[in-house]
Design a protein around this nucleic acid. Structure first.
Lengths: 349, 349
DNA sequence: CGCCGGTCTCGAAGCGCTTCGACAACCTGT
DNA sequence: ACAGGTTGTCGAAGCGCTTCGAGACCGGCG
C-alpha cells in the first residue's frame, strides 16, 4: 500500500453548488449553459459558489445527459512516413482550436482502422472526427458516410461525395511553382516528388501536385519531367545525378518532399550546380523548413496550421447542424526567397 | 438543411441487448465486465445479441456509473523545441499501449498549463495522466501531487517525492559516451548539447547528460568541455569551428542534439576533419537518426517507445491501486557504428 | 425430509447532469 | 382591477450504465 492511495471522492457536484448557493440544481445548470435567462444576482451567487467550491462539471454525466461529449477525435497516421513537423503543427492547431470551442481532443491512431472509428463513434465518446492522411481509396471513407457523427477529412479521397474535405490546393501549388520558374525564364524544369511508395499508396496530394506541375508545364509548352524521390541522402544524390545527366540543361527544380529538400540543396553544389545561379529550386514545404535551408528556399508553404484550424471550425459548424461546403481548398502562397533566380543568360541556342 | 442531418438515435443501448437476449440489463453488464459468474449458455446468447445489434457501450454512461472513464490524458509540449520524431514515437507508444489496456488517450497541450490539468482531472474525463517534457521546477508538479488522479512523468523534476517518473538514464548515457571514447584512447573530448535555451529552461535531461559527461571525464582525468549547441547549420558550423580552433587536438565529440547531428557530420569534413579518422563522433539520439546518418553514428539510443510503454504500464498499475516504483530509469545502450574509431596514432607528445 | 451453501439471475437504486413543463411573481396596457 | 405576456426559478424525469442485495433453483448433507 506504499503510496498509491486515492482520496475518497472529494469531487464537488452540481448538487453541492446548488446547496451552497441556495438554489435548485437546474438553476446552476442554466447558469452554466446560459440556455435560460437567470437574474444577474442569482448568477453571481451561483458563480461565486462555483469558484468557492472549485466545481468542475463531471464530463461523463454531462455527456450522458446532453448527448454531447464535447470531445472530438483526431485520427493521425502516427506511424507512417508522413512528415512529422507538419503533422505536429497540424495537431497543435487542431487541439488549440478545439479548445477555443470548448472541446477536447481524443487521439486515435490510424492503425485502429475502421473498427476503431466505429467504436469511438458508437460509444458516443466523441461528437465528431477529424481525419488526416486520407488516401484516394481510403477504406474508412465509406464508413464515415453512414456513421452518425460528423467528420472532416484532411485531404481528398477519390470519391468525396457527402463528405467535408479540407486541404491545400496542391494542384495550384504545383502550377504556381511552374509559373514562377517560367516567369524567371526557365524552360527545362523537373519535379522531385514524394518517394515512389507514396504514389503507389494513391495518396491524393502527391498526384495532384504532379498534375498541377505537368499540366501547367504543358500549357507553357516547356520541357518538364516529374519523378519520385527517395529521402536518403544517397538516394537523392543518385537521382539528382541521373537527372542532370539526362537533362544537362535543367535550370529549374520543384521539390515536393520535405525530407529530401535539405539533401537536394547539399547535393547540387557537389554536382557542380550553384543555387540559384545555375539552377533554381522552389520547394513545397512548411515555411520553417524553407527558411532554415541554405540558401533560404523560395517555397509554397503548406499551411498546416490553417488547415487544422479550418478543419475544426468546419466540424464545429457541422456539430451545430449548419451546412458547410463539401470542399475547402486553401490557396497556396508562394514566398520568393534566395533559391530562385532568372535563368542565366547566354547559355543555350 | 442541405445535408448536415443526423439520423435520430439509432444508438443501441444495453436495454436493447437485454431485451433481444431475453435477460436482465444487469446480466448483460456482467457478461461484459465478467464481475460475476454467468452461465456459458446465457453468456453466448448475450454475446450473440451484442453482435447482432452491433452494440457498443456508451462511454459517458459507463464512466458515470463506474467512476472510470477508461481514458488517460497525454500532455505533450506541442509547440516547444522538443524533437518531433522522438515525441511522435513516444506518443505512438502511449496510444498503442493504452489501447492494449482498453483505454483511450486524450491529447492535451502543455500550454493549457496547470489549470488545464485541473480541469481534465476534476471533470473526471480521464483516470490518469502521462506528462512529457517535465522541467526541473515544473509548475505542474506540485499540482499533480495533490490531484486525485494518478500520474506518470516522463523526465524528472528537481523534487520528485511522491511522484512516479520514467526516463532514460541520461546521466549514464553521458557517462557511457565518455567511457566509449576513452576506451578508444581519446583524451580530449567535447560535448555538444542542446541549444542554450534548453539549459536555461532547466530541462532535466540536458543537465543530467552533461553531468554524466563531465563527471565521468573528470574521473578519467581527461580534458572535456561541454557546451550548448544551436540547431541551424550555420550555428553548428560556427560553434564547431570555434571549438576546433580552441582545442585543435580534439578527437572525440559527443552530440546530444538530434537536430544538430546531421549538421555536425556535414561540417566536420569542411573543417578538415574526417570522421572517424580524425575525430570520433558519438551521438545520443534515436536509432533511426543514427542509422540514417553518414557515416552511421555510434550512438546511445533514446528508447522513446520503451519509455512510452513503460509510462502507460505504470499508470495502469497505479489505476488498479498497486504500488509502483517512484523512479524508473531505462538503461541506455550504446550501439557502435561507423563514426567512432581508435584515436589516430602518432599525433601527440 | 428439511436445511444449508452454491450458482446464476434479477430488480432497483443510484452516478451527476440536462431539460422540460409548471408556476410564482412581476410587468404591461386598458 | 384583470387578462395576457414576460421573466426567473423549481422539481422531476430521465440519459445508459454499474453494482448491490436478494431471490430462485439445485444438489447434497445430516
Amino acid at each position: 500500500m506504499a503510496e498509491g492511495g486515492a482520496k475518497r471522492a472529494d469531487m464537488v457536484t452540481i448538487t453541492d453548488v446548488a446547496r451552497h448557493a441556495g438554489v435548485a440544481v437546474s438553476t446552476v445548470s442554466y447558469v452554466l449553459s446560459g440556455k435560460r435567462a437567470i437574474s444577474a444576482t442569482t448568477r453571481q451567487r451561483v458563480l461565486a459558489s462555483i469558484r468557492a467550491l472549485g466545481y468542475h462539471p463531471n464530463a461523463g454525466a454531462r455527456a450522458l445527459a446532453s448527448r454531447r461529449a464535447n470531445v472530438i477525435a483526431l485520427v493521425l497516421p502516427l506511424r507512417s512516413g508522413m512528415h512529422l513537423p507538419v503533422l505536429m503543427q497540424f495537431a497543435t492547431a487542431v487541439v488549440t482550436t478545439a479548445r477555443q470551442f470548448d472541446h477536447d481532443v481524443l487521439l486515435v491512431t490510424a492503425d485502429e482502422g475502421p473498427d476503431g472509428l466505429r467504436r469511438i463513434a458508437a460509444s458516443a465518446m466523441v461528437d465528431g472526427i477529424v481525419l488526416m492522411d486520407i488516401e484516394m481509396h481510403d477504406p474508412r471513407v465509406p464508413l464515415l458516410r453512414d456513421l452518425e457523427r460528423p467528420s472532416v477529412l484532411i485531404g481528398f479521397p477519390a470519391e468525396a461525395a457527402n463528405l467535408t474535405c479540407v486541404d491545400l490546393d496542391f494542384y495550384r501549388a504545383g502550377a504556381i511553382c511552374v509559373e514562377h520558374l517560367v516567369a524567371l525564364g526557365h524552360r527545362d524544369i523537373a519535379l522531385l516528388g514524394a518517394p515512389a511508395v507514396v504514389y503507389e499508396r494513391d495518396t491524393g496530394f502527391a498526384h495532384r501536385t504532379r498534375a498541377g506541375f505537368t499540366e501547367t508545364a504543358e500549357r507553357y509548352g516547356i520541357d518538364a519531367i516529374a519523378q519520385p524521390c527517395e529521402e536518403s541522402f544517397d538516394g537523392v544524390r543518385q537521382e539528382l545525378a541521373g537527372l542532370l545527366e539526362r537533362h544537362p540543361n535543367l535550370s529549374g527544380l520543384v521539390v515536393h518532399n520535405e525530407a529530401a529538400v535539405a539533401h537536394v540543396l547539399a547535393t547540387l553544389p557537389l554536382l557542380g550546380r550553384q543555387v540559384p545561379h545555375d539552377i533554381s529550386v522552389v520547394a513545397i514545404c512548411p515555411d520553417e523548413v524553407a527558411e532554415r535551408a541554405s540558401p533560404a528556399l523560395s517555397s509554397v508553404l503548406i499551411p498546416a496550421e490553417d488547415v487544422g484550424r479550418q478543419a475544426v471550425a468546419l466540424l464545429m459548424r457541422k456539430l451545430e447542424g449548419h451546412p458547410v461546403p463539401a470542399a475547402t481548398l486553401l490557396d497556396p502562397r508562394l514566398t520568393v526567397r534566395a533559391s530562385t533566380a532568372a535563368v542565366a543568360t547566354a547559355v543555350s541556342s
